[in-house]
Amino acid sequence: MTAVPLDPPRRLVEFTLDGEPARVAEGATILDACRAAGKDIPTLCQGETLEPKNACRACVVEVEGARTLAPACSRKAEPGMTVSTDTERARHSRKIVLELLASATDLSTTPRAAEWIKEYGAKPDRFGADAATMNEQPKIDNDLYVRDYDKCILCYKCVDACGEQWQNSFAISVAGRGFDARISTEHDAPLTDSACVYCGNCIEVCPTGALSFKSEFDMREAGTWDEDRQTETTTVCAYCGVGCNLTLHVQDNEIVKVSSPLDNPVTHGNLCIKGRFGYQHVGGGNTAGA
């Protein structure tokens, strides 16, 4: 185990959360406090390893004295503030956010989306059959992963992971504006003509399954993807000496996906093309020479 340097002790911030006193370290967000208190706040664009972008607004809470609701994921706890997570007003906005997202986007592979939609009583079909949707076809332009922007909620996490927060490849950005905004390479070129290095770190952070391994995409299309039959084994990548943790997702004795633990101090969930996609030799059965 690597020695983790300790930060200087941080002061505690005391505030009121749903009528109860809460104490969190200075700099912690309202969401951190909620999670510490065991409260379940829906989040989509928030990521453990990324700066909060607070774009989805699914986590809004009411801060006493504020004109508008505050995103729990990015608003830092301030001494003496009074936060309510479960008011009518906050729940209403969360419900509408879920309705809007589900009416425009395919949330079928978004973990917990169905559960939250039920919990908040959201009715995405109330906007009618003619409601505009993302209306995108899956982009399959390489052998490693698929971009299905019909499932994209524009959370910016892939852009941030590809850009200066992690990978510094800058292969993708948000292009266009408003409802027409899409994640895109320059001139919407295929990934193979872009700056993409196929690290797959965007897949790691994608909260909706819009970005997925080609293997997962194909298996879902064929109806054979079954997470209940999958095991996860965390090991160390053998390609170089960095020592990245790989989590191998295995179904029917085949590796179907590779991720890395977000809390791993070496990777923070990030890998390179070799660790992420270079597993074909393991099974042997699918390689050309076998």
């Binding site: 509408i96 997202l101 504006r177 905004a181």
Partner: peptide, 11 residues
């Protein structure tokens, strides 16, 4: 004119 950043305004 919506920039598209947040869901309530974009959609």
């Amino acid at each position: 004119e919506s920039c598209g950043q947040c869901v309530p305004c974009r959609i």
